[in-house]
């Protein structure tokens, strides 16, 4: 076992892991951050998407020891400490961007990654970006709507605020 330390949602954390321990298993099993989901475990579905060093990655396709010293953000780090949802999370709620909710943590983290690099995406750009996030309930339509609405709100568009 090897000691690993990283910053998760602004908090310094550490634990003992095996070489083969995946980042997602460290987050879920050792830190109890079970908001990050394991969907396929074959890096296809994106349910395990978290941010490492500020960009979205699939935490089932990365070892915990590769995140040594890194800044990690999970779905638990998206809402404010008092539980107030982030703009993207609220947009998913308002636009019915989830049904069973299994893919949603990954969708939200992926969407947050998109809006960091492209604050004003077209619908097509949102759909292309979500290639690595699979949802088997919604048909994606409301997810796309939610992300476009969140983007507009974050840009401060008057139409979105109305």
């Amino acid at each position: 076992m090897t000691r690993v330390a990283m910053m998760v949602n602004g908090r310094e954390v550490s634990g003992e892991v095996e070489g083969r321990t995946l980042l997602v298993d460290f987050l879920r099993q050792q830190l109890g951050l079970t908001g990050t989901h394991v969907g396929c475990d074959t890096s296809q579905c994106g349910a395990c998407t978290v941010h490492v060093g500020g960009v979205p990655v699939k935490s089932c396709a990365m070892f915990a020891l590769e995140a040594e010293g890194a800044e990690v953000r999970t779905i638990e780090g998206m809402a404010a400490p008092d539980g107030t949802l982030s703009v993207i999370q609220r947009a998913f709620q308002e636009h019915h961007g989830l049904q069973c909710g299994y893919c949603t943590p990954g969708m939200v983290m992926s969407a947050a990654g998109l809006l960091q690099v492209n604050p004003d995406p077209s619908e097509h750009e949102v759909r292309v970006w979500l290639e690595g996030n699979i949802c088997r309930c919604t048909g994606y339509h409301n997810i796309v709507r939610a992300i476009l609405a969140a983007a507009a709100e974050l840009r401060g568009d008057a139409a979105a605020a109305a």
């Binding site: 994106g46 490492v52 979205p56 990655v57 699939k58 992926s110 990654g113 690595g132």
Partner: peptide, 9 residues
């Protein structure tokens, strides 16, 4: 290549 998360690794 792949998808955005894959391209970050």
């Amino acid at each position: 290549i792949g998808d955005p998360a894959v391209r970050n690794r």
